[in-house]
Structures are given as structure tokens and as C-alpha cells.
């Protein structure tokens, strides 16, 4: 019995070691690539500044009626960060494609590393990359006059973004792992990113959507993350937040990550 326990413990420690090794590689690769850093930080700020300023001279009544706030940037902030996670997910797919093409996946697979460790390192690597922009964007919007919620609010919003990123990265990685043609995941990602962004509450409320778009928006995890974060930012704390949004994201991330683990073990192969 003790022997069995020590073997299980050894397996856990080994898996953790392997995960840390590959995860740290993802992080180092992010921080050593100036283009990725600039893209991660500057792009969301540009979004906030340019898109956020599009309603700068709109009448207050219109903003209150339509966005339920007098500052469109406050409305947009949660949606923009949620939308960013879509693109972060796509980058996780590209990272795996690059490792498959360069042979690095094979290097990993001839070591005693299980496939799901590769998957997890990619998912968490991409998620960390996405989370990197959150504090930067928060700092940016403070300058633009947005009231920042309390610490609990910020933490819960960040967790919701993390869940969204886990789920979305898993979807993109599943696509990459199950595809033998490296171009297909990129094409699909490009194809679904924009519809998912617009058929959500990320940029506008969905009150005036046509029924078919409303249906997509009501299932779209980007909507749930946007709405959850928006309620926190506008109210300034967690009071009055609809927790259904958060639980939905929790279930979404759980199901997608578990599916990714299974798919990784069954289908991740070298070319």
C-alpha cells in the first residue's frame, strides 16, 4: 500500500516537474519576444483608446439608456479584455503548430512526458500571456477616468478572464491536436474569432440583436465574461453581481480543459 502511494506521489511530482519545465519555457519565450510583449500590451490599449473614444461626445442620456453607464470605456473595458482572450487562445494554437513543425513536440514526446502535460503547458502559457495585459489595461483606463473596482472585484474579474482563456485556449488546442494539416486550425480560428466577438456583449449590449444572433450571444462565453466583469466595474464591487455568469465560465473552462486533456492523450501525434 505504502509502495503504491509512493509510486503515485512520484508520478505526481514528475508530472508537476515536467509541466513547470514546459510552462516556464512558454513564459520565457513570451518575455523574450519583444513583438509578443508589444502586441500583448499595446494592442488592448489601442482598442480602449480608439474604440472607447468613439462615443466620447455621445449625450449622457444615450449612454445611460444604451450602455447603462455614462462612460463607454467603463462599458468596453470588460468586453475588450474578454475579446483579447479569443486572440490569446488562437496564439496557443499557433505555439503548438510551431512546436510540431520544428520537431520540439517530438523532443518532448521521446521523454517520459505524457501528452496532457504538453497540452496543459500550452493552455496555461497562453492564459498567462493573456493575463499579462490585464494590469496594463487597468492602469491605462485609470488615466482615461474609469473608476476601478475594489480588490475582490478585480480578483474575481481576473479569475473569470482566466477561466475564459482556459476554455478558449483548450478549444483552439483541441482543433490543432486533431488536425493533421497545420493550416486548418489557423483558418478556423480566424473564421470564428470575429463572429464570436460581435455575437457577444463585449462591444455592445445584446438588447437589439436579431434572434439568431441573440441565441449565439446567450451561449457565447465571451458574453458571460464581459457581462460579469462589466457588472463588477460599473458597480465597483461584487455586490449585485450575477454569479450565474461566473459559474457558466467555470463549467465552460472545466469541460473544455478536461476534453483537451483526453484529446491530447488520444490524438496528439508527431507528423
Amino acid at each position: 500500500m505504502d509502495n503504491k502511494k509512493s509510486i503515485s506521489l512520484f508520478k505526481i511530482v514528475r508530472s508537476f516537474n515536467q509541466f513547470i519545465g514546459l510552462y516556464v519555457r512558454e513564459i520565457k519565450n513570451t518575455f523574450r519576444n519583444p513583438a509578443v510583449i508589444v502586441l500583448s500590451i499595446v494592442q488592448p490599449l489601442l482598442w480602449i483608446v480608439f474604440f472607447g473614444s468613439s462615443f466620447a461626445f455621445a449625450p449622457l442620456e444615450f449612454l445611460q439608456d444604451f450602455f447603462h453607464t455614462d462612460n463607454y470605456i467603463a462599458f468596453l473595458l470588460a468586453g475588450q479584455l474578454s475579446t483579447s482572450m479569443l486572440f490569446v487562445g488562437m496564439f496557443s494554437s499557433l505555439s503548438l503548430i510551431q512546436d510540431k513543425k520544428s520537431g520540439y513536440v517530438r523532443r518532448i514526446m521521446v521523454s517520459p512526458t505524457r501528452n496532457y502535460i504538453i497540452f496543459l503547458s500550452k493552455v496555461f502559457g497562453a492564459t498567462s500571456r493573456g493575463m499579462l495585459q490585464v494590469p496594463i489595461v487597468f492602469l491605462g483606463v485609470i488615466i482615461l477616468g474609469v473608476q476601478i473596482p475594489d480588490a475582490y472585484g478585480i480578483i474575481m474579474f481576473m479569475i473569470s478572464l482566466l477561466l475564459l482563456s482556459l476554455g478558449l485556449s483548450s478549444i483552439y488546442l483541441i482543433l490543432t491536436m486533431t488536425s493533421s494539416d497545420w493550416q486548418i486550425p489557423t483558418v478556423i480560428s480566424n473564421f470564428i474569432n470575429l463572429p464570436l466577438m460581435f455575437a457577444s456583449t463585449a462591444l455592445f449590449p445584446n438588447d437589439n440583436f436579431p434572434p439568431w444572433m441573440l441565441f449565439i450571444s446567450n451561449l457565447n462565453p465571451v458574453s458571460f465574461s464581459s457581462s460579469f466583469g462589466r457588472e463588477i466595474i460599473i458597480s465597483g464591487n461584487l455586490s449585485g453581481v450575477n454569479w450565474i455568469y461566473f459559474y457558466y465560465l467555470l463549467i465552460f473552462a472545466g469541460i473544455m480543459t478536461l476534453t483537451g486533456l483526453v484529446v491530447a492523450n488520444k490524438t496528439l501525434k508527431i507528423d
Binding site: Q18, G21, L22, N29, Y104, R106, P112
Partner: peptide, 21 residues
């Protein structure tokens, strides 16, 4: 050659060490 070119020699070795526990 299959190495992570953006990492140092020692960092590449460290990853390998972790993969083999």
C-alpha cells in the same frame, strides 16, 4: 537540430532535466 533557440544553453538543458525528472 531541435532546440529552443530563444533560450540559453543552460535553460534548454534545464527543461530536459525537468522532462526526465
Amino acid at each position: 537540430v531541435i532546440l529552443d533557440e530563444s533560450l540559453t544553453v543552460m535553460e534548454n538543458i534545464h527543461i530536459q532535466a525537468r522532462l526526465h525528472n
